[in-house]
């Protein structure tokens, strides 16, 4: 067994929360720049150049890219040959979030109860998803999620007879309804299959995929390309103010499902698609 003290997890999570909110990943930046060159609307180009300048200011002047520094969504893959010692792992992760959001001048956007709505003042608790995997490593992904786009996300419980056409319609419906609210150009995460909650989790995880990585399944690759083209013919455009570039990418994950169902989840993210991964 490899022993890992959870205090190490706290330190890493803290740093990741800060990094994710000040610097966009290389693959996102690359896609952003490529998309920018393809925008034809003058106002769209103007919005793109503001967003580009925004990223530069964020990094140089240490101002978060977006004031909505999100609810911290954290994926943890724990190798089954790892023995975690020290504080309870969930407490250790939340301590990292508390430290990162406080020391990193990040906004505290979490309320302790959905109805009573009292701010916890330290952005905890995080939403943590654990997986047990083979090996002796711990892989952590921190993906702070803003709610302008989160609020526009959907789960559709389609019928098997709806098939791929139904899936396409569901994705386009979610994107059209999101429109300017979700801060386009957006990244669209999609989960197809599984159960109600599995589809939503896949859609969330799809947003954290490196944009240069493509799915192994051929129809999924084609669907990603087709949906990106379709979304970019809707005319919503940067900032929702009209133009060609409504989405930067469509990432789709799939899983086995039940004979009676075809769940489709669409998790929309704005152009500030933040995620950082570290392996201990």
């Amino acid at each position: 067994m490899r022993i890992i003290n959870t205090s190490e997890v706290t330190q890493i999570v803290s740093k990741m929360c800060i990094d994710a909110n000040y610097y966009l990943s290389e693959d996102m930046k690359e896609t952003f720049n490529k998309s920018m060159d393809r925008e034809e609307s003058e106002l769209g180009k103007k919005i793109f150049s503001q967003l580009e300048e925004n990223l530069q200011i964020a990094g140089e002047d240490k101002i978060p890219i977006c004031q909505d520094t999100g609810m911290a969504v954290i994926f943890v893959e724990i190798g089954q040959e790892v023995s975690l010692q020290g504080a309870n792992i969930t407490d250790a992760i939340n301590e990292g979030v508390r430290k990162g959001y406080t020391e990193g001048y990040l906004r505290k956007s979490v309320v302790s109860d959905p109805i009573e709505r009292v701010n916890t003042k330290d952005n905890t608790p995080a939403v943590i998803h654990y997986d047990i995997v083979p090996g002796d490593k711990v892989k952590i992904t921190v993906a702070p999620k803003g709610f302008g786009s989160e609020n526009m996300s959907r789960v559709f419980m389609l019928k098997p007879a709806d098939g791929i056409e139904g899936v396409k319609e569901a994705i386009l419906t979610a994107v059209k309804d999101a429109g300017p609210n979700a801060c386009p150009p957006m990244v669209v995460g999609v989960g197809i299959g599984g159960t109600f909650e599995k589809s939503a989790l896949m859609a969330k995880k799809a947003l954290t995929r490196n944009l240069n990585d493509r799915p192994d399944i051929e129809w999924v690759r084609s669907l990603e390309d087709e949906m990106l083209d379709e979304i970019n013919s809707l005319g919503i455009g940067p900032g929702g103010l009209g133009g060609k570039l409504t989405a930067l990418a469509v990432n789709i994950n799939t899983y086995a499902t039940h004979i009676a169902g075809l769940p489709v989840a669409v998790n929309i993210c704005c152009h500030v698609n933040r995620h950082v991964t570290e392996i201990i």
Binding site: Q50, L51, I57, A58, P64, I65, G148, G239
Partner: peptide, 13 residues
């Protein structure tokens, strides 16, 4: 009016 969503660093200036 709308200002540009996700340009918080720029707008702070």
């Amino acid at each position: 009016l709308a200002s540009v969503g996700g340009a918080g660093a720029l707008l702070s200036k």
